[in-house]
Design a protein around this nucleic acid. Structure first.
Lengths: 255, 255
DNA sequence: CGTGACCCTTCCATTTTCTGGAAAGGCGCT
DNA sequence: AGCGCCTTTCCAGAAAATGGAAGGGTCACG
């Protein structure tokens, strides 16, 4: 009855581009193909509006329709995404070093950057005989949980740090640190030590060690981490390897 | 003087979304970072319009600005692109098989799909001791030149085949086949043999052998190829390997 | 230190694109 | 036939999008 959407006005009700991007937001890892109705529902747009916008997006190649008429993210969009300097660009130069680290340790190697108040995983090499981790390339995670996240948060602007520490903090295991004061101390440690340790923050059987990658101007632009089974080795022993790898990538980025 | 753009009308002059996508089109492999003016010029849009559209795109994360204020493709767009079923999705399931092929042959391995009348390269593994090839992941190429292209064209709809054969045909080396009749015969061979051979069509020192990958409904959805130095081996000998790899990937796609 | 040639950003009267309810056309199921 | 669900097209009305102009910034040159 008191649905605020009942009887919408006739004319434009918001920025067009924003609404088109809302539609694209309806896609995620669990929903790679969607019907028109699904898209409209998930983006909270009228059916006819969604239909028209999707036609425009489809004409360009941002979305495609499969044989059953279902919508999916278009190849053109993937091509464009491949041009992002911070994602694929970084990935390309870092990959050889990540592979070296993977070869030496036989553990999980991860490469990530910060986007707002979250981590985005750019590359991930699975260690065959190591712990299973739940991250996905292109996936997001909280900055407070992971090894890479702690590194990126420790070197983020004060504003971002406050946003994260004052906001709600994700909780995954009994070991997850959610106390802002304690997190602050951990971040200070990361800055002084040059590496981070995230012990059983995500799952009770895993532990990760992260180190910062710096760009041309000395800013921290990304982070590497090694994810190992809890108790298999001493994390501080791994820190040297991870830092060396991160520094090698930093040097490669300068050139 | 007779510039048709002199004295544009004041109100909207075209679909908004289309213009935003024009802006994104301004990015390519050679132009990963651009100034506002560059973007406006390349997209043929007024400066103020480009500025406003880029603000909207930036608010969502489709574009970002680096420290110097230059625009670049945003990480959000890369994340979205990672959800394209035909690009990264295909890539993920095919990768292990491609690596096997690469290990066995030590040559260049390529995975590609068709987009309209062009090939788009989805993955590429460089053979360390093999010929240097000029393809790039996310890059486009003519359907008539490469091994993968011939496979994809041979199994495309009649309409697409006519479009390509009647249109202008790219010419790279003295060996490049540009005669439609001869191309038609080559395509027929590809269909009967189950593999394609592109001998010195792109560079005079390379040769590629391609095979089709089929999806659940039997349609050809992608192609693999091996790129080797011309004269190093007999192409027909490689065909078996490439076809076996393609069939393994096809089976993996069914499941 | 003035001048010119670039950039980037904001403003606002003008205008036409965008909007979304309604209606109609599938398709599969009961 | 009837129902539920999906998609597609249509069109009068409304406000979002437009781009010229103006203001400000930086750098290089004479």
């Amino acid at each position: 009855m008191n649905d605020p959407r009942r009887g919408r006005p006739k004319g434009p009700t918001g920025p067009v581009i924003g609404r088109a991007l809302q539609l694209l937001d309806a896609f995620d890892a669990e929903h790679r193909v969607l019907t028109l109705s699904d898209l409209a529902r998930r983006a909270d747009l009228p059916l006819s509006t969604a239909h028209r916008l999707l036609q425009e997006l489809g004409a360009w190649g941002a979305v495609e329709r499969d044989d059953d008429g279902l919508y999916q993210v278009g190849l053109r969009l993937w091509e464009l995404g491949s041009l992002a300097p911070r994602g694929p660009g970084l990935r390309e130069t870092a990959l050889p070093y990540l592979e070296d680290l993977s070869q030496i340790t036989r553990e999980n190697v991860q490469l990530a950057v910060r986007e707002g108040t979250e981590v985005v995983f750019v590359e991930r090499i699975a260690g065959l005989r190591s712990v299973r981790v739940r991250t996905r390339v292109g996936g997001r995670w909280a900055l407070t949980s992971t090894g890479v996240g702690l590194v990126l948060l420790a070197h983020a602007s004060a504003e971002v740090q406050e946003d994260v520490l004052n906001g709600p903090i994700e909780h995954h295991t009994p070991m997850t640190v959610t106390d802002p004061a304690q997190l602050r101390r951990m971040l200070a440690d990361v800055r002084t030590n040059g590496y981070s340790i995230s012990d059983r923050q995500v799952t009770m059987d895993a532990l990760s060690v992260g180190a910062p990658i710096r760009g041309g101007n000395g800013e921290v632009v990304a982070a590497v981490s090694l994810v190992v089974r809890h108790g298999s080795t001493t994390p501080h022993g791994l820190a040297g390897l991870v830092r060396t790898c991160a520094q090698a990538i930093s040097r490669a980025l300068m050139a």
